[in-house]
Every structure is written in C-alpha cells, then in structure tokens.
C-alpha cells in the first residue's frame, strides 16, 4: 500500500510539473457537436387558404384603447360547451397565467367547442386577447368571437371576429384571417361594444381535433 501511495504521489507531482507546458500548447478551436436533425415522416399538409403571414418580429404595434381599461375577465366565471374538460379546470382560463407550460392549458373535446366569460355586468369592451396554445406552432380552426348580453347567445349577438371561412361552426362564413398561435396571443378588436358575456368558438387545430385555451383577457372599461 505504501509503495502504491508513493507511486501515486510521484505521478501527481510529475503531472503538476508538466502542467505549465501543457498550458503552453497550441490552442485549437473547440469543435462542438451540434444536434443533428431528427428524421421525420411525411408532413401532413396544412390547408388554410386565408392564413395570415406572420409578422416580422420586434414589438407588436401598439393596439390603442381608451385610458382606464382593465382586464374585466380576470378571475371571472367561465362556462363552456364541454363543462368537463379533458384537461385542466375552466378557472384556469381567466386566472392570469399565460405561460405555455404543460399543465397550464385547458383541453376541450373534438370539433366545435366554445368557452364563455361572464364579466358580471355589461361593459364597453375594446379588446379580447386569447391564447389557445403556444408551445407549438399551430393554427386553431374556425375561431369566432361574439359578444352579447344574452347568456345563451340567441339575441343581440355581435360577432367581432370570425375566420370560419367554410362555416363549419354554423355561425356564418367569416373573412378574418387564420393565424399561427404565438406567446403574444391574438388581439381581437371589440370596437367598444357593450356586453356582459364574451363567447369564443374554435373547431380543432392543425395538430389535432381538440380545442385548447391558456388564457382569455377582455379589456374594457369597468361598468359604472
């Protein structure tokens, strides 16, 4: 054992003595092994005739609203066409948390689904901002936003956004563009329409037939 310890000490000393020489050696650039592309299968075609070309990045142009607007939807009651979502709780849609992490979204069933926010009182609404899902580049189909004072959306319904170009939701054909989801969310101009209820429709997305919501904000002036 003593011999072994002695030999180890000599080796360490020799290595230490050689260290300055090693440092003086010529340096070469570190060649990193970058991750190779992962092989994929044939991509599924995305057929969206009215898809909006994404904006070059940088700050999104300001969306002008009257001074004093607040998020009227924060922590307000949410109802939906599917009161038992596949994932998550309805309350998450207005809890103010917009991160795209796993578990931070609410998943609804296939096909046409809607969520509805009760603002508590009719208020002038200037912007609706919706985040469906943004940890993957996908497009939600047949997005429609409506406002009304009628909780059943039968009378006095105002449609402020509709990109359902084939009228799959049965709410009328829409001309607004489809768009790729990002962490910016989508600002929908509500033009100061006064309403108590906000209803948002979708009908699947380009990845699956399911519907998702991370957050909905409704910016307006509080009811007097």
């Amino acid at each position: 054992m003593n011999h072994l310890a002695l030999r180890s000490s000599f080796l360490l000393l020799a290595a230490a003595a050689l260290l300055p020489f090693a440092r003086a050696e010529e340096k070469v650039p570190l060649k990193l092994q970058l991750p190779k592309p992962m092989f994929v299968g044939t991509p599924v075609p995305v057929k969206l005739p009215n898809l909006e070309t994404p904006r070059a990045s940088g700050r999104r142009p300001d969306f002008m609203v009257p001074k004093g607007v607040v998020n009227l939807a924060l922590n307000k009651t949410v109802t939906s066409s599917d009161m038992e979502p596949v994932l998550g709780d309805l309350a998450q849609i207005t809890d103010g948390e917009k991160a795209g992490d796993e578990g931070n979204y609410v998943e609804f069933g296939k096909g046409k689904q809607w969520v509805q926010v009760d603002l508590g009182a009719a208020s002038p609404i200037y912007a609706i901002v919706v985040w469906h899902y943004h940890s993957q580049a996908r497009v939600y189909k047949a997005v429609v936003a409506q406002l009304s004072d009628d909780p059943d959306f039968i009378k006095d319904v105002v449609t402020v956004y509709n990109n359902d170009d084939r009228n799959v939701n049965g709410l009328g054909e829409g001309k607004d563009p489809t768009y790729i989801e990002t962490n910016e969310g989508r600002i929908i101009d509500a033009k100061g329409t006064k309403a108590r209820y906000v209803r948002l429709y979708s009908n699947g997305n380009t990845t699956s037939d399911m519907n998702h919501y991370i957050e909905v904000e409704v910016w307006g002036l509080p009811a007097q």
Partner: peptide, 21 residues
C-alpha cells in the same frame, strides 16, 4: 420567436411549406 427575440431582435418570416413558417 417571441422567446428568442426578447422584444428587440428582428426576425423575418419565410414560408417553408403551406401554413408552416
């Protein structure tokens, strides 16, 4: 792109397939 741009870097979109940028 939002995460990477940090609000200042300029990114320009290009279509690689219909509907994919």
């Amino acid at each position: 792109v939002g995460h990477l741009s940090g609000g200042s870097a300029k990114f320009e979109p290009y279509s690689i397939r219909p509907g994919v940028f």
